[in-house]
Amino acid sequence: MTRIAVLVSGGGTNLQALIDAQARGELKNGTIAAVLSSKADAYALERAEKAGIPGYVVARKEFASNREMTQALVAKLKELDIGLVVLAGFMHILTEEMVQAYPNAILNVHPALIPSFCGAGYYGLHVHEKALAYGVKVTGATVHFVNEEPDGGPIILQKAVDILPGDTPESLQRRVMEQAEWVILPQAVSLFCQGRLSVDGRIVSIKKEE
């Protein structure tokens, strides 16, 4: 059974999607063992508590740099015997110590179809504002492995979402979450925990279920 840690900074909607998937028995061979927050007042910690999942605070403001915070996170994850790290609205840049400690074992969900609208500065509503301003007709979400490059790791799953007339960044953000992020993030976590993902360079292969 793979022990999963979810890293959060805010409301924890993607965390809730994982908690709900676990309750439905959809995280095969995985269990959410911990939620680590960069903010003590993050609502995601309340979601974890309601689900009976231990919550921990590794507050960014308590460290002089992102590197020191990353080192503290790695130490806590190792202490908790974590096998998979999931970034779910974690709003800080992790330094290379995290990737070195968990190579091809950190997942992130991004609210666009990478390589569109991704990389440094593309987070939250900014992603949807850029998609609408560019005039694309289709957007969506991507789950990828994390490497040293922001949003640059190998892609595991993607799901498209149509942009509709009259969409605002807020309405589009909500629909991308509901139709894509909350669907493919639990799927990707389950695939990892079942040992069904293999990585060759940028290509992620998914083994058929035995």
Rank of each mutant, 00 (worst) to 15 (best):
T2K: 14
A5R: 02
A5M: 09
V6L: 10
V6R: 09
S9G: 11
S9I: 08
G11M: 04
G11Q: 13
T13S: 15
L15G: 08
A17T: 14
A17Q: 07
D20N: 11
D20F: 02
R24I: 09
G25I: 11
L27A: 06
G30F: 03
A33E: 12
A33K: 07
A33G: 06
V35K: 05
V35F: 05
L36Q: 06
L36P: 02
L36Y: 05
S37D: 01
S37K: 02
S38M: 05
K39N: 14
A40G: 06
E46N: 15
E46D: 15
R47W: 10
A48N: 05
A48R: 07
K50Q: 15
K50H: 11
I53K: 05
G55S: 06
Y56R: 13
Y56L: 05
V57F: 05
A64F: 07
S65P: 04
S65M: 13
M69K: 12
Q71L: 15
A72Q: 06
A72K: 09
L73K: 10
A75K: 15
K76P: 00
K76R: 14
L77W: 10
K78E: 14
L80P: 06
L80R: 02
I82H: 01
I82P: 00
L84Q: 05
V85A: 13
V85R: 05
V86S: 07
V86D: 02
V86N: 06
L87R: 05
A88K: 03
G89Y: 01
G89W: 02
F90R: 07
H92M: 13
E96P: 10
M98D: 00
A101D: 09
Y102R: 07
P103I: 12
N104H: 14
L107Y: 03
L107M: 12
N108W: 04
H110S: 07
P111G: 11
A112D: 06
I114R: 01
P115M: 11
S116P: 00
F117R: 13
C118M: 09
G121W: 01
G121D: 01
G121Q: 03
Y122D: 10
Y122G: 09
Y122R: 12
Y123K: 05
G124M: 06
L125Y: 11
H126E: 12
V127Y: 02
H128W: 02
H128V: 08
K130E: 14
A133T: 08
A133G: 00
Y134W: 07
V136H: 08
V136Y: 05
G140H: 01
G140A: 04
G140L: 02
A141P: 07
H144F: 01
F145I: 11
N147L: 13
E149T: 12
E149G: 01
E149Q: 13
Q158K: 05
K159L: 15
K159W: 04
A160M: 10
A160D: 01
V161E: 01
L164Q: 12
P165T: 10
G166I: 11
G166S: 12
T168S: 15
P169L: 01
Q173T: 14
M177E: 10
E178D: 15
A180S: 13
W182K: 14
P186R: 03
V189Q: 04
L191R: 04
F192P: 09
C193D: 10
Q194N: 04
Q194I: 13
Q194G: 02
Q194L: 03
S198D: 11
V199W: 02
V199Y: 08
R202W: 10
I203G: 00
I203V: 15
V204W: 01
S205A: 12
S205I: 00
I206C: 04
E209R: 08
E209H: 05
E210W: 04
